[in-house]
Amino acid sequence: MMSVMTIVSVLFILGGLFFFTTATIGLIRFPDFFTRLHATGKGDTLAVFLSLLGLALYEGFSLTGLKIVIIAIFMFIAQPTATHAISKAGLRFGLKPWMREEDRK
């Protein structure tokens, strides 16, 4: 017999897995460096947040659950910053963003 909390946490973890999958597919399929960063920067942030929240709910409201939430908050701050750092380095390095053919004219 599964409790309500377990079902909710299972849903959260499944959501996290879904966004992990789409972020990975985006990372493989998108045409250039900057568009790939769109996938990892947004997708991984929410995916990690959801999966960790699900695991914290499964753990229950204890000190361990709070620690998992701390990791989630840390990722929430750090992931966009890391994305910004890499993309900035790429732009300064001289990578040209990919454009559609009709936009180049």
């Binding site: 840390f74 701050i77 750090a78 910053t81 910004h84």
Partner: peptide
Amino acid sequence: EDIIIKTISRVLV
């Protein structure tokens, strides 16, 4: 200056 990385690392360190 790269204010974003600076501020975030300042808070996190």
